[in-house]
Write a protein that binds this DNA or RNA. Sequence first.
DNA 1: ACAAACCGTGAACCATAGTTCATAAGATAC
DNA 2: GTATCTTATGAACTATGGTTCACGGTTTGT
Lengths: 206, 206
Amino acid sequence: MAKVTRRERERQQHRREVLAAAQELFSRKGFDRTSMAEIAERAEFAVGTLYKFFKDKKTLYRALILDTVQEFAQVLTTALKTRGTEVERLERYIETKADLFVRHIPTARLYFAQTAGAKYVPTAGLDRDARAVCKGVLDALEAVFRAGIRKGLFLKTDPRMLVLGLEGVGNAFLDELIERPDDFSAETMAGMTKTIFFERIRLKAR
Amino acid sequence: MAKVTRRERERQQHRREVLAAAQELFSRKGFDRTSMAEIAERAEFAVGTLYKFFKDKKTLYRALILDTVQEFAQVLTTALKTRGTEVERLERYIETKADLFVRHIPTARLYFAQTAGAKYVPTAGLDRDARAVCKGVLDALEAVFRAGIRKGLFLKTDPRMLVLGLEGVGNAFLDELIERPDDFSAETMAGMTKTIFFERIRLKAR
DNA sequence: ACAAACCGTGAACCATAGTTCATAAGATAC
DNA sequence: GTATCTTATGAACTATGGTTCACGGTTTGT
C-alpha cells in the first residue's frame, strides 16, 4: 500500500477546494463579511466539513494567507536575485510583480490585504508568520537599494525610505490595475512605476 | 428664547462626544470590530442613547466619515489652490497633507480607510458621498497635473497616472509616519515624497 | 405647581454566524 | 460479506452584538 493513499489524495483535494472557495470570498469581501456557510456552499460541502480541515475560521484564513503570501514572496524574491545591475533587478521586480498580480487577481488582493491594507483589515493580528514572509521580501528589496546606494547608483538616503516609496507607487498602480483591469495593461503600469521611480517626472529645472 | 437653547447645545455636545469615541475606536479597530456597546462605554452613555443620535451603526459611521473626509478635503483643496507654479502647488499639497495627518492621526486613519484601504475595509459601500468628496480632491490634483503638463513642466502622460503615483508614494510615507510617528518627522516624509516624485532617485544614466 | 416634552437608561429581544455532534453514507480491510 | 474506520452532513447549540422600548429623572413652558 502506497504511503499516499487515494483517500488521503482526495482529502487533500477537498481541502484545496475549500481553500479556493475561501480565497475567492475572502479576497472579495474580507474576513468578517465572509461566513463559513458561504464558503461551504461555494465549495459544495456542508459547514461541518470545513471544521474537519480547519480548527476554526481564523485558522482557515491563516492557512490561506500563508499559502498565498509564500507563493508570491517566492516569485518576487527570485526576481530580485537575478543577474544585472541594481536598477535592472528592481525593474525586473516591478515587471514580475505586475505580471503576477494581473494573472492572479484574487491572490493579489489577499496579498495586499496583508501588506498595504493590513492595518485597516480587521484580521490584522491573525497573521504573524505571514507578516514575516512579507517582511522578507521587503528586506530583500532594501538590500538591493543598499547595494545600489553603495555603488552610487541611487541617491544617498535611508534605503527603507526607498523601499517604502517604490512599494507605494507600485502598489498604487497595481491596485488600479486589479480594480479596473481593462483600462490599462500590466506593461503600462510597470512602465509608469519605473518612470516615476527611476526617471524624471518633472521636465524643467525650477 | 434664543433659537439655540441650552438643551440643544448640550445635545450637540453629547453627539460630538459620541462621535469622538467612535472615531477613536473605528480608526483603531475598524467598523466590524467595534461594537456599539464599546462606543457607548467610551462615550460614557448607555447603548440606547446612541440610537437617539443616530438611526443605526451604519449611519453613525457614515456621519463620522463624512465629517472627517470633508474637513480634510477642505484643507487639501485649499492647499492646491494657492498661488505659484504647478510644482509649488503640489509641493504645498504634500507638505500640508503630511502636517495635517501627523496632527490628527485617528482622523487620518479614517481618511485612509476611505481612500487607500477602502477596498479592504468591509464598510466599503457605506460611503457614497464621502467617496465623492475624496474624488473631488483627486480631481483637483489631476487638474494641477494637467496644467503642468500643458505648460511642459511634467512628462506628457495621462495625468491620472501621475495622481495615482503621487498619492501612492505620499500615502506610503504617511502611513509609515502614522504607524511609527517617532521614527521620522513630517518634514522628512514630505521631503522624501518630493524627492522621489520630482527629483531623480537614480543618479547615473544607464 | 403641574403637565408635557425631552433625554438617558439598560435589560430584553432578535438576527446572524461560528461551532459542535449524533448520525448516515461510503470506503477499506479481512 | 461483515466489521471497522473515515468522511460528510446539517440541524441544533451558543456567543456575539445590533436594536428596541418601557421606564425614571429632569428641564421647559404655563
